[in-house]
Nucleic acid binder design. Structure first.
Lengths: 170, 170
DNA sequence: GCGTAGGTAGAGCGATCGTTCTACATCGTC
DNA sequence: GACGATGTAGAACGATCGCTCTACCTACGC
């Protein structure tokens, strides 16, 4: 079950949402076609399962065990986002990619909204930046999108913007 | 010719890169299948033609006739990006979407890189922020990605971050 | 030791895809 | 008014797609 979701996530992350056929997804999931369809009865649901898995992994990887000090927490969050990009997602946010691939899908958009809202809420809570909620999300989004082209330079820029947020807030 | 590119751009922008069939693209382009294939001999080239068209339109719409004062220029740029999002691209950056849909395509990645590099260069030139080049791009990327969910709130956050960039620079 | 639940392997289905090709219309030029 | 270039409409193609179905294989409770 979780093995299936993890395999699907890996397949979509590596090869995009258009390319992999259901047979490719079966190979990535490591089960038979029949079992795959039992847990995810259509290709669209395979996408949703993959994103659900990624959502959990992303939150855990970026927001677990943060330092209490807001400034340290922000630095840690951005560093971890950079790390995530470096190791997991070399071409931008998978949720935006999924929605872009199928802009008509309502459940996909709902998932994107939930994911981003949760990221923004966790970031705001950890940095005690209630007012600058959206600015914070904007920095994270910017870092995520700029990373594929600029790598650590994007991380540095994000950290500098983050610092200016903290100092302008108090 | 340009009518074809414009039609293709509209089709992909509205319905994503996966959904529209070549016959849909033909309808959007307003020509026959034969003529469509004459100018863009494969579906992949239709994508490239659409993005080329969008690139030109985006640059013109965001960077033409900017005020000379750096601070005013930055404000104008961000406002225009918000305007672009509001009227043209309700779900994020089309270039990132294209690459996300087909992460293996080399020409697509090259086009994305060229587009982003040109945007960054024009923004840096207009705001006299040579050093904060990447921070500037990061703000624009963040605004573009955050817009679909937060609209004008994202624009406000982007402007505040932009101001902090300007003041920390001098 | 046998029945049942749940797995695998893989052939097969209809639909749709990108692409090509044929047949016919239109138009500016001599 | 005939001609070649260029366009349209749309039939036809092989391939591939998402999905279903059949046939067979385990593993475990009674």
């Amino acid at each position: 079950m979780n093995k299936i979701s993890a395999g699907l996530e890996r397949a979509f992350a590596n090869r995009g949402f258009a390319e992999p056929s259901v047979e490719d997804l079966r190979d990535a999931a490591g089960v038979s076609l029949r079992t795959l369809y039992k847990y995810t009865p259509s290709r669209a649901e395979m996408v949703l399962a993959a994103l659900e898995n990624r959502h959990q992994r992303y939150l855990a990887r970026v927001f677990d065990d943060l330092p209490e000090d807001p400034s340290e927490a922000l630095d840690t969050i951005l560093t971890r986002v950079g790390n995530w990009m470096a190791t997991e997602s070399s071409h931008g946010c998978l949720f935006h990619a999924a929605v872009a691939a199928e802009p008509r899908s309502r459940p996909l958009r709902a998932l994107l909204e939930r994911h981003k809202a949760e990221v923004a809420a966790k970031a705001a809570a950890a940095t005690a930046l209630k007012g600058a909620n959206i600015a914070l999300l904007l920095i994270i989004e910017g870092l995520t999108q700029a990373w594929p082209l600029h790598k650590v330079a994007a991380l540095d820029a994000a950290k500098r913007l983050g610092l200016s947020l903290l100092s302008s807030d108090r």
